[in-house]
């Protein structure tokens, strides 16, 4: 058992534990902070897989921008109320848990039956740098990259439109 495998197993257990804590905590702020922890652990696993650029993107975009947006909305809506998240085991939830376990069994069965690769590919060493990702992104994948900018523009306009306070609703504004 080499050191890399030991570190991987510790990180995997921490990732699973923080994911379970995300969906079982009563306070949404606590859930969000555990999700940040989970995202950081996965970023470390990306470094194991020599994907440096994606690891940094994960930390800045996901753990930075998206989670700040989540925390901002939670605190804007003042959701300290924990009645919503009482995790009582009723019949619907038991069915959901059993279906989840069945799904896990199916995925693991198929994964274990066909996956055989045991080591990193030799050219993965230089594959994850910003230079090589940028070269491919701006040549082979230029059109999807440009379409992404239109998607982001649509998301910005949509988010502002949805969250905007309707001023002309009644005779006296609100």
């Amino acid at each position: 058992m080499n050191l890399e495998l030991v570190v991987f197993l510790i990180l995997a257990v921490a990732a699973v534990a923080s994911a379970i804590l995300v969906i079982t905590r009563k306070n949404p702020v606590t859930s969000a902070l555990y999700l940040v922890l989970n995202l950081f652990i996965i970023a470390i696993l990306y470094l194991f897989l020599r994907a440096q650029f994606i690891a940094i993107i994960q930390i800045t975009v996901y753990a930075g921008a998206i989670m700040v947006l989540f925390l901002f909305v939670i605190m804007l809506l003042n959701l300290g109320d924990d009645r919503l998240l009482k995790w009582k085991l009723n019949s619907k939830r038991t069915i959901a848990l059993l279906l989840g376990l069945a799904l896990l069994g199916e995925i693991l069965y198929y994964v274990m039956s066909f996956v055989t690769m045991s080591g990193l590919s030799p050219n993965s060493e230089s594959m994850g740098t910003a230079e090589s990702i940028g070269k491919i992104l701006y040549s082979n994948y230029l059109f999807p990259f440009e379409v992404t900018s239109i998607l982001l523009l649509a998301a910005i306009v949509g988010a502002i439109f949805l969250a905007k306070r309707r001023i002309s609703e009644g005779p006296d504004g609100e």
Partner: peptide
């Protein structure tokens, strides 16, 4: 796969839209 299934169970069982 384990992380994906935890997410699925969360979507199926939780009641708070943000979580």
């Amino acid at each position: 796969a384990i992380l994906f299934v935890i997410g699925v169970v969360g979507v199926l069982t939780l009641r708070n839209a943000i979580v």
